[in-house]
């Protein structure tokens, strides 16, 4: 089976506007990331603040123009398309944002927010639009009678339902979920996670699910990619990754999650320090400054990929760096 979305060596640098006469600094937000996502699958993308996961997502959707690399959607490189032709792809790939308060225009009714994508993509018949909007509202569990209300009249969970409906009304094949439940309370979070799973089954959606919450990613993903400072350090099927994390960063991440079970005794591996700045990322393996198992080679060469099983890839010098793929 060929992948729905394939990301190859994607790069994004931001130029910091330096003062006159000074050398310009670059933020190395995404530095050479590759992975693929198949139809109907959820790929979880975990990482800490500033690791570049949101930038990566925006580059895939061309909300930001990447500095290098390619994104293939059903085999077609969408980064090379002129923007006019790319619009046809917009309806096939959508995004749900983190903040359900900031991502809805406060001056539009929910109906007009949901109608908007249909208008943009040329649905001229108001009746057809109305029917679609109402059907979609039903699908995400919004009372169609509330469609004439404004976003501020809704709770956080309901607003996130509106955001999901807006993303799905064009019947996309691929949806980026950028921390869609981080702003929600535990009790509401479960509702939205369940909804996303249901919709995935019903509409055969592929998700790129970005989050910093490992429990959430464990719950919803088929495969998980772990990101650190602009690079992917490990990628594997969920069960395997959680059972057998290989990269020291992945291990530390898992060990850091508080477990809601007071009898659980952890083997602590608390990481020292904070993630370094992506303006001057460390040489070699980017994790070496905080890694408890670092070796001399780590600060010199970036690690090569190692695959213990066909679907599990880790970038770490501990495993010899024999290139398998």
């Amino acid at each position: 089976m060929s992948p729905l979305v394939e990301v190859r060596n994607l790069k994004k640098h931001f130029v910091l506007s330096g003062e006159w006469g000074k050398e310009r600094a670059f933020v190395d937000a995404v530095s050479g990331v590759s992975f693929s996502i198949f139809q109907g699958e959820t790929l979880g993308l975990v990482g800490e603040t500033g690791c570049g996961k949101s930038t990566l997502a925006r580059c895939i959707l061309r909300l930001l123009e990447p500095t290098g690399g390619s994104v293939l959607f059903r085999g077609k490189d969408i980064l090379k398309l002129p923007l006019k032709e790319f619009k046809a792809y917009r309806r096939r790939m959508q995004i749900v944002f983190q903040d359900p308060f900031a991502s809805l225009n406060p001056r539009k009714t929910v109906f007009s927010i949901l109608e908007e994508p249909l208008i943009i993509h040329g649905e001229r018949n108001p009746r057809a639009r109305r029917e679609k909007v109402e059907a979609m509202a039903e699908q995400v569990g919004l009372d169609p009678r509330l469609l004439r209300n404004y976003p501020h009249e809704f709770s956080g969970g309901q607003r996130q339902r509106v955001c999901i409906a807006r993303a799905l009304i064009l019947e996309p094949e691929f949806v980026v979920c950028d921390e869609p439940v981080s702003a929600l309370d535990v009790s509401v979070r479960a509702q939205i996670l369940n909804l996303l799973s249901e919709l995935q089954e019903r509409m055969h959606l592929a998700y790129l699910f970005i989050t910093h919450d490992l429990a959430v990613v464990h719950h919803i993903s088929h495969r998980v990619a772990v990101m650190y400072l602009g690079t992917i350090v490990e990628i594997a099927p969920t069960e395997e990754l959680f059972a057998n994390p290989l990269h020291p960063y992945t291990q530390a991440l898992f060990e850091s999650i508080p477990v809601p079970n007071p009898t659980y005794k952890r083997k602590r591996m608390v990481l020292e320090g904070d993630p370094p700045s992506p303006i001057h990322p460390p040489s070699g393996c980017r994790f070496h400054t905080r890694c408890p198992k670092r070796m001399e080679v780590c600060s010199v060469h970036p690690p090569e990929a190692f695959s213990p099983t066909p679907e599990h890839v880790v970038f770490c010098h501990l495993y010899g760096g024999t290139k398998v793929i």
Partner: peptide, 24 residues
């Protein structure tokens, strides 16, 4: 109990979460 049921867990099975209906 509902709060604990609504929590995605690392140890448990990855089944449907027991969401609490409505909001605060």
């Amino acid at each position: 109990r509902a709060l604990l049921g609504a929590l995605p867990r690392l140890d448990g099975k990855r089944s449907r979460l027991e969401a609490i209906p409505g909001s605060v």
